[in-house]
């Protein structure tokens, strides 16, 4: 059982730019209790008039003591994400609570094959699973399908290349929807059934499937997986809506 959830004050200790519009925030949260990959936090901003607003952000990596990481994509007119990607500076405090969410999580003790399907910034909680797998020295077979607009929109690109090379049992397929880097044969297009068949697991392997992305992306991929014969009870989804805020 958890203690009742309360807001904590975190402090920004470091920033890493992922793309022109997304950055990873390293936050120090005194007394952080640890978390499972796939869990998220709620971040709350309050202005001088007392107006407050909150959004959920996925934890991007296993905790390092009291330090956690979130990757935030700036969303046009997103009142929280614009602050977190443009204004929020090292040393600044922010209110957050978590970890929360017990459904869209992968337990590093599990050994069943895992299929991860990410659309855009939906890669964040799935990257937390890939990183947790490495940290736990898990041998669970992992396949990651990462659908992204163009090379310049990719998060964690060099780390994913390195992990795919060094971590036995992890396969990564990056599927571009608008423009491809030179040397990639697959023309840019949205993810389809053929991609899930080619880069995913056959349903007979009974993988646990995690799908995260914008609502339309998640509906399409989840329906395609069911159509391919995957048991809906083994498909876990997380939709961040049209904006993410």
């Amino acid at each position: 059982m958890n203690a009742r959830l309360e807001w904590r004050v975190a402090k920004l200790s470091g920033v890493h730019h992922e793309t022109a519009t997304a950055r990873t925030l390293q936050l120090d949260v005194p007394g952080w209790p640890g978390h499972l990959p796939g869990q998220h936090v709620d971040v709350r901003l309050t202005d001088e008039d007392g107006y407050s607003t909150q959004r959920s952000y996925s934890l991007a990596a296993p905790a390092d003591g009291d330090r956690i990481e979130l990757t935030v994509q700036r969303v046009k007119d997103g009142e929280v994400s614009e602050y977190l990607t443009d204004t929020f500076s090292v040393g600044d405090p922010v209110e957050l609570r978590g970890p929360v969410g017990g459904w869209f999580v992968w337990h590093p003790s599990r050994t069943a094959p895992v299929l991860l399907v990410a659309g855009g910034s939906g890669i964040v909680p799935l990257m937390a699973m890939v990183r947790a797998r490495r940290q736990a020295r898990s041998r669970a077979p992992f396949r990651l399908l990462y659908s992204v607009r163009s090379p310049s929109d990719q998060f964690y690109a060099s780390e994913l290349r390195r992990l795919a090379r060094d971590d036995g049992g992890l396969d990564v397929a990056t599927l571009y929807t608008r423009s491809v880097p030179t040397g990639v044969m697959r023309p840019p297009r949205r993810i389809g059934v053929a991609d899930l068949e080619m880069y995913g697991w056959p349903p007979q392997f009974e993988p646990t499937c995690f799908v995260c992305g914008p609502t339309g992306f998640v509906e399409k991929v989840a329906n395609s997986l069911v159509g391919l014969g995957h048991d809906p009870r083994r498909i876990r989804t997380e939709r961040f809506g049209p904006t993410g805020g």
Binding site: M1, N2, A3, R4, L5, H40, V41, D42, Q54, S56, R97, G98, V100, G101, G102, W103, F104, T215, G216, V218, E219, T237, E238, R239, F240, G241, P242
Partner: peptide
């Protein structure tokens, strides 16, 4: 399709309940 899913309720409901 202007919706998120129930995962977004985890925080707000955890204010009330100790189970997820």
């Amino acid at each position: 399709q202007d919706y998120q899913d129930g995962n977004a309720l985890a925080g707000p409901l955890a204010e009330l309940f100790t189970v997820d």
